[in-house]
Amino acid sequence: MSERKVERTASQSEALTDEEAERQIRRKSRRSFLLGAVTVAVAGSGWWKLRSLAPGSKEAQDLGDVAWPFRRALETNEKLSRAYFRDGRPAPTFPRKEAKEPRLNAQVGLPEEFDPAAWKLSLLGLKDMSAATATDEDPTPAVRLPIEAIKAFPKADMTVELKCIEGWADVVNWGGTPFAEFLKRYPPPTKSGKPVDLDNRLDDLPQYVALETPDGEYYVGLDIASAVHPQTLLCYEMNGEDLPLNHGAPLRLAIPVKYGIKNLQRIGTIRYTDERPKDYWAERGYDWYAGH
């Protein structure tokens, strides 16, 4: 009881004359407000500095990237996301009848003049590049596949949300071959030299997949775990019909574990690599990972 009393009185002074009370509170105020002012000044200049480093600022543009505090934060978030990422937590699926044509949001990499009949998928960084050829348009030797070859692979379809980083989502039904099935048929080299084992030895593979449109205008990078996720499709059908040209025919990526920006329309090149690939929107200040 007496201890509690001491505690009580410690939090309040004894009765003071008005002048003495005034003097004491002034002293406390001076100290606190001064400390407050210093804190505001430090925080304010920190904020000002950060502002000059944020995406879109002149300094960030000069650096050609997002300056370190912001990029570091995005990368830290990415590390946590990748550590938590499991195939067993797939993107929710929806009834087929809810599917509709997704909003047309960007046409970068989809020029109006395009001949689908002449299109071939170029593959780089495979284990076996012996079939690689150069063409008139593309002097880099690559393994080239017509759309029929991809359509001959096992097919899957799914009705999922295409989630835009802007904050909207459309339910779409995608049909195509799972990227994992494609990878098994056109594997990259493994570090150990052993055959590809997607269930147990993801580390054994190149860590990234780089995709580009045929004209090279739009490009995305994927971490290997997202690329071989069962819901990642090389897609040639949308809502049960042939993929239309303005959605990336003849072949596009549907990857519901990522935002829409990674769902590259019209794949020209697929390349396995251990170097983090460049990414169109990451170069414009967005999160490179952009995954769920």
Partner: peptide, 15 residues
């Protein structure tokens, strides 16, 4: 026109 800027700040200061 500042979506990237907004996200960069949001995903840092959320912490």
């Amino acid at each position: 026109q500042k979506l990237a800027t907004g996200m960069a700040w949001h995903f840092l200061f959320m912490w």
